[in-house]
């Protein structure tokens, strides 16, 4: 009952604060739109120098929206160097070689994709087919990284919101006042978790709906399953944000937790392959909730997994929520011994 009064208060308070509402509901959509344009398929069409390629391949390349210029061997290499062309494709002892200026990851991915497509058309199932680096060639980087960003952005925003709001309760002494009423500590923590949980849920649903129906990110699995993972992750963010706020005396000190708590989680979220990290640092991911959430989101969004297939990840998130929930109840002892 008291828990419910706290939940209602947090909802009303947050709704009344336009900035917080914006941070929860508008900012993630804005960020996703931005990422969509930054990582999505662009209108960019590459120019490739060629030398000694079979006629059909040249036709196929043109088919792929590539501007093809015939060069001599040395000429072509020089052209790549001084960037008059984006890449140089040539045959050398029956082997196809691609010389590419690799400083721009997006450009090179577009070029490689085009060449892969061209050779695929020409010789399906043949020995020329190279290993696909970027998954299904129909998909943009946005689709492949989207799941990571869904997890990271939602965690980050809710972490900040819950953390700051706890710090504010401290600095303006409302927490002290609340703790002098006969409310139990667990009721306070539950009220807060559920109160911000409502907004976490709202954000998850809105964000998923937006990326699916407006940005047309392909979600192989069910939207409901992805929603469940997102909501559990946001709840973890609420509990962790509240916990960190105990060690912050003001809003700026809360911000100081971002490089400590949030950024490492971004590194371990799936942006960087964990198998290739030296010294087994990859195991660090096991203590990061974003890792589990992104793992589950990846399975659902890319591989079309069902909830039962990601049950271990969901369990891990639930353990994080439970752990920080209990820690928060103890942390409130700072305000009242009983």
């Amino acid at each position: 009952m008291k828990t419910w009064v706290i939940v209602k208060r947090i909802i009303r308070q947050t709704v009344n604060d336009k900035r917080s509402m914006g941070l929860i509901l508008i900012v993630p959509l804005f960020l996703f739109t931005l990422i969509y344009f930054l990582l999505g398929d662009s209108e960019y069409s590459p120019t490739i120098a060629i030398h000694g390629l079979p006629e059909q391949l040249v036709v196929e390349l043109k088919e792929q929206d590539v501007t093809v210029i015939d060069y001599g061997m040395e000429e072509g290499k020089a052209a790549v160097k001084d960037e008059t062309v984006d890449a140089f494709l040539y045959l050398e002892q029956q082997e196809m070689v691609l010389l590419i200026e690799t400083s721009d990851a997006v450009k090179s991915s577009v070029i490689q994709k085009a060449i892969q497509n061209a050779t695929k058309e020409l010789n399906p199932g043949g020995g020329m087919r190279t290993e696909q680096l970027y998954g299904d060639s129909e998909e943009s980087m946005f689709n492949n990284l989207g799941y990571v960003l869904l997890g990271v952005i939602s965690f980050f925003l809710i972490f900040i919101l819950a953390g700051i709001s706890f710090v504010r309760e401290r600095t303006n002494q409302t927490m002290e006042r609340l703790m002098i009423t006969p409310v139990k500590r667990w009721q306070v923590v539950l009220g807060y978790t559920l109160g911000f949980g409502v907004f976490a849920m709202l954000q998850s649903i809105l964000l998923l709906a937006y990326v699916k129906w407006v940005l047309h990110m392909s979600i192989q699995g069910s939207l409901l399953a992805a929603g469940c993972v997102m909501i559990l992750l946001s709840m973890t963010a609420v509990c962790m944000g509240a916990f960190c706020s105990i060690y912050a005396n003001n809003e700026f000190q809360m911000m100081q937790f971002i490089p400590m708590i949030v950024i490492p989680q971004i590194f371990f979220s799936g942006l960087i392959s964990l198998d290739t990290i030296p010294y087994h640092l990859g195991v660090l991911a096991k203590v990061m909730p974003v890792y589990y959430a992104c793992d589950a989101l990846k399975a659902i969004i890319i591989k079309g997994a069902t909830l039962s297939e990601v049950v271990m990840e969901l369990l891990a998130l639930l353990i994080f929520i439970g752990l920080f929930f209990i820690l928060n109840i103890f942390a409130l002892k700072k305000y009242r011994r009983i």
Partner: peptide, 14 residues
């Protein structure tokens, strides 16, 4: 017990 802290200790957005 009733308690009035030194700061106002009120929720500004309510």
């Amino acid at each position: 017990l009733g308690y009035m802290p030194q700061n106002d200790a009120l929720y500004n957005d309510l």
